[in-house]
Computed example of a mutant assay.
Amino acid sequence: MDTKIKLAEFVLSRALLNVYLESSSVQVERLSGKKIKLVKHMLAGDYRKTIDLLAAWEGMK
Rank of each mutant, 00 (worst) to 15 (best):
A8V: 07
S25H: 09
F10A: 02
L53G: 06
R30M: 07
G33I: 00
L53A: 08
G33M: 06
S13W: 05
D52N: 14
K35D: 04
F10D: 13
I36A: 06
A44Q: 11
A55G: 10
S32T: 09
D2H: 09
G45C: 03
E58V: 10
I51T: 12
V11F: 04
H41R: 11
Y20V: 09
K49E: 12
A55W: 03
E22M: 15
V26W: 03
V19L: 13
M60I: 14
R30P: 04
L31W: 07
T50M: 07
L7G: 05
M1N: 09
W57I: 13
I5T: 15
S23Y: 09
D2F: 09
E22A: 15
A56Y: 10
L16D: 09
A56K: 13
A15T: 13
A55Q: 15
V19C: 02
K37T: 12
A15F: 02
V39I: 08
K61G: 14
E29V: 05
L17T: 03
I5F: 06
S25E: 13
K61C: 10
L54H: 03
K40V: 00
L12G: 08
K35M: 10
M60P: 05
L54Q: 14
L17A: 01
K4V: 12
L38S: 08
S13F: 00
G59R: 13
G45P: 12
A15D: 15
A55R: 15
D2N: 15
A56V: 13
V28W: 00
L31A: 07
G45A: 07
L38A: 15
E58P: 01
K49G: 07
L54P: 05
Y20P: 02
K37P: 02
Y47A: 04
L7N: 10
L16P: 02
S23P: 00
K34C: 06
D46V: 11
T3D: 13
N18A: 13
M60Q: 15
K34V: 12
A8Y: 01
K35P: 00
A55L: 15
E9A: 08
E22H: 14
I51C: 07
L53P: 04
V19T: 14
L54M: 09
G33P: 02
L16C: 01
N18C: 09
M1F: 06
L53H: 07
R30D: 02
L31C: 03
M60T: 14
D46W: 08
E58S: 11
Y47G: 11
L43M: 12
M1I: 10
K6V: 08
L54R: 14
L7R: 03
S32W: 02
E22L: 05
G33L: 02
S25W: 05
E29A: 05
A44H: 11
Y47Q: 13
K34D: 00
K37I: 01
L54G: 02
L38K: 14
R14Y: 04
L31R: 05
S13A: 15
T50H: 02
A44R: 11
G45N: 11
K37D: 04
V19W: 02
I5Y: 07
H41V: 06
I5G: 02
K37A: 10
E9G: 03
T3H: 08
T50E: 01
R48K: 14
